[in-house]
């Protein structure tokens, strides 16, 4: 039996989450500054852990597209990226796409910082939609 998708609607301070093996869409989009990042990110980390431990899945490409994130979210985002890195290291072809607006140098730098700490293919993609 395949893993159920994890889909959460965006709020003002939490991103839209879509982790859906059936449609092969894995994305975190929006703002991430919940009051309690541990509470928000624990089920997401659990989902990735279950997905990767399942062993039946192929490689995945995960899209990250944030307008804002706070520093406690930054640590959980890194945890997710490390899961993807570990899975990639087992021979699964994984990739990360980090989306940022053209003038948003802070979000570009955040992506570069993550990119520097990983070896999984990590693409920095300029967003073409407007703010």
């Amino acid at each position: 039996m395949s893993l159920s998708p994890l889909i959460l609607d965006a709020t003002e301070d939490t991103p839209r989450i879509k982790l859906d093996p059936a449609s092969n869409v894995y994305e975190l989009i929006g703002n991430s500054y919940p009051e309690n990042s541990t509470k928000f990110y624990t089920p997401i980390l659990d989902w990735f852990r279950a997905f990767f431990e399942d062993g039946q899945q192929g490689g995945i490409t995960v899209d990250f597209s944030f307008d804002y994130f706070n520093t406690s979210s930054a640590k959980y985002i890194l945890e997710i990226l490390r899961f993807i890195q570990d899975y990639h290291d087992t021979g699964k072809a994984c990739a990360i796409r980090w989306h940022y607006f053209e003038d948003d140098t802070d979000m570009l730098e955040a992506g570069e910082d993550y990119q520097a700490s990983l070896t999984v293919p990590f693409e920095l993609i300029e967003r073409t939609d407007t703010y």
Partner: peptide, 22 residues
């Protein structure tokens, strides 16, 4: 930037905050 990366990659996560990253 270098110090930020060091804390981000080595620091512990707390429920209350980012362990000095803020």
């Amino acid at each position: 930037r270098e110090f930020y990366q060091k804390i981000l990659t080595n620091g512990k996560i707390s429920a209350a905050g980012g362990g000095g990253l803020g």
